[in-house]
Write a protein that binds this DNA or RNA. Structure first.
Lengths: 196, 196
DNA sequence: TAACAGTGTTTAAAAAACTCAACAACGCAA
DNA sequence: TTGCGTTGTTGAGTTTTTTAAACACTGTTA
């Protein structure tokens, strides 16, 4: 049942919001390689390269990786061209987006997507807690306490930090923030990549 | 003819030098999604997610993109790696390393090397200036002003920021900080990667 | 002109990914 | 306990990608 084996992804940007075919063709030509030469280096056939470049098929990650190895180029480099522009530089206090998660509020600097860095001005009400289920995600995070006290648990370590104290850890370690006092706690944090 | 339809990519990191399965599982769990919930949002079946996470198949770029759209996360973010060693987590106020550059002082959270994130508590004396020769380096940086005023020039844009105001830009754009007032200026900044 | 070496494209068969539906395991409430 | 809802995994069948080989086109050489 294939009366219309037309290209399933449309000819231009495809269904992926990222024009894999055009990107591969540009990269290949920028390196002065023919389809056949790249195919030989990559250990695939020239037909595969042709079809990918025309967006007539969507390569598997493993075959795309093989092809890029023949360039050579990493997957991250290949896709690291789609980051949106987004270039607001200055943010007035009133412009900071405020996010609320129960007794914790975050004032976020700029937008979340397309950046490698996220900066938050966080406020923890007395007793506020990010939850018993510990947080875990990629990247690193750190911060400095401005006011009040915060109890921070990272893996099997736990400390109570006060004004001027700071922290920095890999976000892959399970972690939890809790305000154990009667006073609001205020801190500024940064993390990479953004995760909220 | 499929006498050995075993997994072609080995169980761990696969043939791609990048463990797509483990990475997807980590990302999904970090966002608190079940395989089924992610599958529903992405418009694929839960079986697909399961097989990908076990590295029993290598998804096509278009299906991986669909899956990531349900997170949401871009392909570039997915393939961007990170490697944090070093593990001091808590830093008492007195422990913060202080660096001085003329009329500007930085109190640094943790060590500089081997991290993707650097956090600084900066103090600019009245008139302090990072110099007429504009700064330029890789990464992104941002911060929030706590006290005083700072004049920030980024490319051809210039603003004076006060308490609560913030900034965020690509460090590749030439930039310069200057305290134009009579009062000390204090701010907390973050940048990635570290550059001092 | 013909013969050749290079290019990218296209087709049928083989291989791999994807779907659908069933399965086993766990936690939780009745 | 039973029952229900959830989790992740698995097998049979369908769809898509990949291969291998042929095709059409270009520029060069004889």
């Amino acid at each position: 049942m294939n009366s219309l084996p037309e290209q399933l992804v449309d000819g231009t940007a495809g269904d992926s919001g990222f024009d894999v075919g055009a990107r591969l063709r540009a990269v290949r030509e920028a390196n002065g390689l023919s389809q056949r030469e790249l195919a030989r280096r990559a250990g695939v056939t020239n037909g595969t390269i042709s079809l990918i470049e025309q967006n007539k098929n969507s390569p598997s990650v493993s075959s795309l990786k093989k092809v890029l190895d023949g360039i050579p180029m990493t997957l991250a480099e290949f896709f690291a061209q789609d980051e949106p522009p987004q270039d607001q530089v200055f943010f007035r206090a009133a412009e900071l987006v405020t996010l609320t998660r129960g007794a914790v509020s975050f004032r976020q600097v700029g937008a979340r997507a397309g950046h490698a860095l996220q900066i938050l001005h966080e406020h923890y009400a007395p007793g506020a807690d990010t939850g018993r289920a510990m947080l875990r995600h990629d990247g690193e995070e750190g911060g400095i306490v401005l006011r009040g006290r915060i109890e921070l648990t990272v893996g099997d370590r736990r400390e109570i930090l006060g004004p001027g104290d700071a922290y920095h850890f890999s976000s892959r370690i399970p972690h939890r923030f809790r305000n154990p006092g009667d006073e609001e706690c205020e801190l500024i944090s940064a993390c990479t990549p953004p995760y909220l």
